[in-house]
Design a protein around this nucleic acid. Sequence first.
DNA 1: TGAACTATCCGAAGCGCTTCGGATAAAACG
DNA 2: CGTTTTATCCGAAGCGCTTCGGATAGTTCA
Lengths: 339, 339
Amino acid sequence: MNMKRLATMLGLSQTTVSRALNGHDDVSVATRQRVEEAARKLGYRPNASARRLATGRAGVIGLTFAASSDCLMNPHFSEFLAGLGARMLEADMDLMLAPVERGEEMKAYRRLIASRTVDALVVSLPKEDDERIDALNALAMPYIVHGRTLSADRHAWLDIDNMGVFQRATRHLLDLGHRRIGLANGLRGFSYAEQREKGFRTALEERGVQIDENLVTNGEHTDVSGREIATHFLNADQPPTAIVASSMTMAMGILRVARSKGLVIGRDLSLIAHDDVVSYLNPHSMLPSLTVTRSSIREAGHRIGELVLELIEGRDPTTVREVMPAELILGDSTGPVPR
Amino acid sequence: MNMKRLATMLGLSQTTVSRALNGHDDVSVATRQRVEEAARKLGYRPNASARRLATGRAGVIGLTFAASSDCLMNPHFSEFLAGLGARMLEADMDLMLAPVERGEEMKAYRRLIASRTVDALVVSLPKEDDERIDALNALAMPYIVHGRTLSADRHAWLDIDNMGVFQRATRHLLDLGHRRIGLANGLRGFSYAEQREKGFRTALEERGVQIDENLVTNGEHTDVSGREIATHFLNADQPPTAIVASSMTMAMGILRVARSKGLVIGRDLSLIAHDDVVSYLNPHSMLPSLTVTRSSIREAGHRIGELVLELIEGRDPTTVREVMPAELILGDSTGPVPR
DNA sequence: TGAACTATCCGAAGCGCTTCGGATAAAACG
DNA sequence: CGTTTTATCCGAAGCGCTTCGGATAGTTCA
């Protein structure tokens, strides 16, 4: 069933049918209803390719995902997607997922853009100095970055205040008297991790606490990585009395190692983790309940959907700069420094 | 840059350019090279919509994902996607993710089909008697089910032997002398969960062990759910001496509760979990290392990609029936029944 | 009452690609 | 040497939609 047939069946021109279905105002109410009813009854759906070809709009936004192993973002990816997808659903748009090899994102972006498959892109996991920005800016395709680069004034972005939130977390530990604090951060290079480290360092510096570089570590957001780091920390000559972790999965690994060493969390060792609010990793279900810095990655996805729609409508990308709130929520995993 | 311009620049007809680029054999090697070179140099990419309109093929396969909260499949979803995506990448095809409200999948399928956005669909999480099968069979669109329904002869599918593998796991526990065995299964209704329960029951029945219905439970694949079930089990008058769990996340919850009750896993309580090989949930990194039934959901995704391509090529769907291997891997979480 | 609007509708071109059915010239054949 | 083949190439139609620029008839206005 295509528009031509529908039109002849109705005794109307294709033009009128098209305009009726698309809500133009030069068609009478009566005919519009007649057309809409017939379309529904006959199950008519415009051919997406034809419409795209004619309008130049795709009704699709694109994002890449690493088809090869992708430990880092996996647990967060689907949460983000769920939020983004919810918003796209409301707007009757689709998500195109382009699988890519790590670091080959631009290839996929170019393909999606050149083949006019998408109306906009969502760029994930930016580095501080991400080469994608320049490349995309040269390409005349709206895009928004989840996170931000050092040249955030040159692209649309939505982020959380990674630096601020880790600074707050570290300060909290300092307030409790801790002086030897370890950082179990995400992988080096990614903007969020660099910002978090900066927050961590700033908090220590502003209190005049000497930073032990052995206590500043990076790893994947996995429990394995958390265990490695915790082992490294706790076997040191002067183990830290508190740890700030970049993800719940890392925190789980840390908890396990601490427990196996007979340490009581919240007394012998304090722990704060960042919680992206992944539904199946609940800090309250941990023992003890974790003190976390929390910001819902799903909500971020939803909001990014909103913004990307505005970008498609022509909003100036450089005006799109949003910081999602992140809060420090106290649990039982932090306590005063043991004497 | 479009094909017309490219053709005139080369002094060729559009036809020849098209045929050269698409590898037809009625164009000389010399011209083909000339065309390919020019296309590369000028960054020409065929407009996807136009090609789709002309060929009727979309170069896209579609799948739905629940935009609302979706605890059950979240952790497995991106793994599956990664496998599927890897295969699609090789074939230069894209994935269209249609966000849907739970249970509204058919709406999305119809939209994707009617608008000719996709060449095939991947159906996830089937129920035993899934209404999508009949609906899709009426729709003349190739699709493959990840899992299978009770009428598996009416659709293409790829699955693991859920029944067999849970039967094996249960038998193993019986061999170790356990008689009170609990099942922490996934949500009722889903085919995989029903099959697993069937395997569990069959193993017990074939040894003449009376089944205590209080020990047959269902829940989401989360650690919270695992904790609830474990609490329920271990507070009972006659707690089970062994548990079979449907996912690693559930197992984590169970471990935690057992530990908090002072039970030593592998001695006081045996535990087997199903492991979909999600990269950030590694049974070896657990303490103790878990005995698991293992089958990589990522590989399943990859294989499904392969099969869906064959379906698009016209392979008879009823000949597509594959069982992925699943193995029982012994760890330290299972041991002889305590006397 | 004739001119100027207004409300509705339509013809036809065009989006960028593929492909059917030739056309042309060179090569092979008897 | 005339006729088939073969190797290359091309014109034009068509995929299903949108939209520009009218066309028609009914209304309104001076």
